[in-house]
């Protein structure tokens, strides 16, 4: 009877799921894609990943410890995830100083200025990526070509992404069927044999990670599936209208950052809607904007911009799209 008891309001049980476990679940889901990138891009992929993760975690630690003077919360894993996603969104031969600048922008500007984890309106990794893309357009768009595992870094052979080849070619009046000869086959695209950002190339590995996320109940199917379906439907219609001017939907799904964006970037908890209905609207928005940019925009790829634009609508979606309440509302005096 000497025990002094703890007293708290109910419930007295908490589930085993924690923020940290969720974040490391995302890291696990990213591993197949990381392995594929290392397989195709070699040493460059490893360096970019390590630098990005380290820079993100260090930025968060320094800001929390020395500027905000709060208890650093880097162990929650959110900075690691941002670092990985940032690395996945850049070419594998990107100079280290650019990665560090990107990491500082991601964590320092896009995350910590808004109050840290849970308060940022825009996906930090994407803000970092877009910042780098605008500031260092040359370095950010010189994509190394896959060449099997190698130890080269800055001197990798570079070329254009399939989407860029397609976009440029169509602008110059070439037909899609002719351009298809210049890009890898659909099967190659599926397992990742193409030029592009480090982590976006491997559709197969990314889908595998996505299945893991859904199975672990870290994400629901709503966002990725609606984005992919929207892109497929939109490009399918265009392809049906004029197959010589527009590429087929499968090509659109397998190239560029759409898989990475749909499965990992758009599903970021903080910057995505919280209800299923909201998620579907958000997903459709991303899909439509992506295709608009890809087909008619100045950039060959638009997933990052599409997600950031839709991020801005998330507070609105959360405010106006409500879950279905239990029971009809009865007017009472």
């Amino acid at each position: 009877m000497s025990n002094i008891l703890n007293v708290s309001p109910s419930p007295h049980r908490q589930s085993a799921e924690t923020t940290r476990k969720l974040m490391y679940g995302v890291v696990i889901a990213l591993l197949p894609a990381l392995a594929t990138s290392i397989w195709f891009f070699g040493m460059g992929a490893i360096i970019v990943t390590l630098v990005s993760v380290f820079a993100c975690v260090a930025t968060e630690y320094i800001i929390q410890k020395f500027i905000l003077k709060t208890k650093p919360s880097i162990s929650d894993g959110s900075a690691v995830v941002t670092g990985l996603l940032l690395a996945f969104n850049v070419p594998s031969n990107l100079p280290v100083y650019i990665i560090i600048i990107g990491a500082i922008v991601s964590i320092g500007v896009a995350k910590m200025t808004f109050g840290g984890l849970g308060n940022n309106p825009f996906n930090p990794a994407l803000v970092g990526r877009v910042f780098m893309l605008i500031s260092f357009p040359v370095q950010m768009t010189s994509w190394p070509l896959p060449q099997g595992f190698n130890t080269g870094y800055a001197d990798a052979v570079t070329g254009a992404t399939p989407l860029a080849i397609m976009s440029e070619g169509i602008k110059n009046g070439e037909t899609v069927s002719a351009l298809m000869e210049k890009v890898p086959t659909h099967l190659q695209l599926f397992y990742g044999y193409m030029g592009g950002s480090m982590g976006e190339i491997a559709a197969a590995a990314l889908i595998l990670g996505g299945i893991y996320l859904v199975w672990r109940k870290i994400i629901t199917w709503h966002i990725p599936v609606t984005i992919l379906l929207t892109v497929a439907a939109f490009t399918g219609i265009l392809w049906g209208v004029d197959p010589t001017k527009y590429a087929d939907p499968l090509f659109h799904l397998l190239t560029g950052g759409i898989m990475l964006g749909a499965i990992f970037m758009a599903t970021d908890y903080v910057t995505s809607p919280m209800t299923a209905k909201g998620m579907v609207i958000y997903g459709i928005g991303i899909g439509v904007i992506t295709v608009l940019i890809r087909v008619w925009g100045a950039y060959p790829e638009g997933v990052s911009f599409a997600i950031l634009i839709m991020n801005a609508f998330v507070p609105l979606l959360n405010m106006y799209i409500k879950p279905k309440r239990f029971g009809k509302e009865v007017k009472r005096g």
Binding site: E17, T19, L22, S73, D76, S78, G116, L117, G118, N119, T220, Y269, V270, S272, P273, M274, T275, P323
Partner: peptide
């Protein structure tokens, strides 16, 4: 920890 707006409570 801070709310990460995962929406698990709503579901």
């Amino acid at each position: 920890l801070p709310c990460i707006r995962c929406g698990k409570c709503s579901s």
